[in-house]
Simulated scan of single mutants.
Amino acid sequence: MRLYLGLYLIDMIDVAHLHPLIVPREYIESGSWDLPHVALPNQAFILTWVSYGEVMVYLDRAEFDELESSGHPWQRQALENVRQTKYFQRYHQHDADGKLAWVAFVNDDDTISSSKVLLAHELSQLFPEGYHLAIPDRACGVVVSNACSDDALREVVRMIEQMHDGANTPMSPQLYPATDFQLPTKWTIPDPGADISAAIVDQFRQSGL
């Protein structure tokens, strides 16, 4: 496949289906899998990329090298693909003061739900007091406000533990600071030519934020 994206020529790889994915560092520790990845501040995890459609296929070394040599900002495009999901606010809770307490990203059929925890540009607006996040399953993510009430926190911690216990691909039941999964701003900043980022934030505001 050959794609023309602006001035960029890319063979084989349809970047419109490329998504980032957080996985355990154990995936690469044996040395038997040459999985393209970048380190995350939390050293228990790494970031890789997959082609996501009817099946999920990991980006291989040849494809990664091709993307890197293309000059196309493909890491940013991969996060932009995550923003295109229809599902953002299906599972969330507000505290009594009306502030958003937590959001759970699960069971999406058009993107990898856990990858939404990487959308720092939007999440920093939804949680101006800061936030922690959890990835109980490779396919699920939870974001919790630093200002979350004690009752809401106890509830969401129980939910995260239950999600981890029932996970198809367990990751961790812990809550981590958002900075543990911080990516370069040039990857996370939205496409200025699209309004999907503002629409995501507005969804929550209209639901009680």
Rank of each mutant, 00 (worst) to 15 (best):
S114C: 06
V82C: 01
P41R: 14
N168V: 09
A199H: 11
G193L: 15
Y176A: 06
L3T: 02
Y131F: 11
D60Q: 08
H17E: 10
Y87W: 02
E129I: 00
I189L: 12
W187Y: 06
S124T: 14
R83T: 00
A152R: 14
S113T: 03
F45N: 05
L5Y: 12
F88N: 05
E29R: 15
D95A: 10
L35M: 13
I160L: 10
H37E: 05
G6Q: 09
I13M: 10
D97G: 05
A44P: 07
T85Y: 01
E26D: 05
Y52S: 01
A199M: 12
V23G: 03
E29Y: 07
P73I: 11
I112Y: 06
P36V: 12
S114D: 08
N146M: 11
G53M: 01
C148K: 03
Q93T: 09
A178C: 06
L47S: 11
A120P: 00
Y27K: 15
V57T: 12
Q75H: 11
V117L: 06
P73W: 09
N107D: 15
R158Q: 12
Q182E: 14
L59F: 08
A62I: 13
R83G: 01
L21T: 09
P73Y: 09
E54D: 13
R154E: 15
G98T: 08
A198G: 12
I196L: 11
S124Y: 02
P20L: 04
G31A: 08
A198R: 14
T48I: 07
H72G: 02
D151Q: 11
R76M: 10
E161K: 07
V117C: 06
V23F: 04
K186T: 15
V103Y: 00
D97K: 01
P190H: 15
V38K: 08
G193R: 13
I13Q: 04
F64M: 10
L100F: 08
L40Y: 07
A134P: 00
I135S: 00
R138V: 10
N168D: 13
E161L: 02
A167V: 04
S197E: 05
H17T: 13
E29K: 15
A167K: 03
V144E: 04
Y8W: 15
E155T: 10
A44Q: 15
V103C: 02
S197Q: 01
N146K: 11
N81F: 07
L153S: 05
P20N: 05
D110W: 04
A194F: 11
T179M: 03
W33I: 10
I112L: 12
I196M: 05
Y176L: 09
H19E: 15
L40W: 06
Y4A: 02
P128W: 11
G31W: 14
A120Y: 00
S115H: 00
Y8V: 04
P20S: 04
H132N: 09
Q182H: 07
N146W: 03
R83W: 05
S113N: 04
D108K: 07
I200W: 00
S32F: 12
T185L: 10
K99C: 02
S51M: 13
V144R: 07
E66L: 08
R2K: 07
E155W: 01
A120M: 01
V144A: 07
T179S: 10
R90Q: 14
L118R: 10
S69M: 06
H92V: 01
L209M: 09
A147P: 03
N146R: 14
A167N: 02
N146A: 15
L18I: 05
Q125C: 08
I13G: 03
E155C: 07
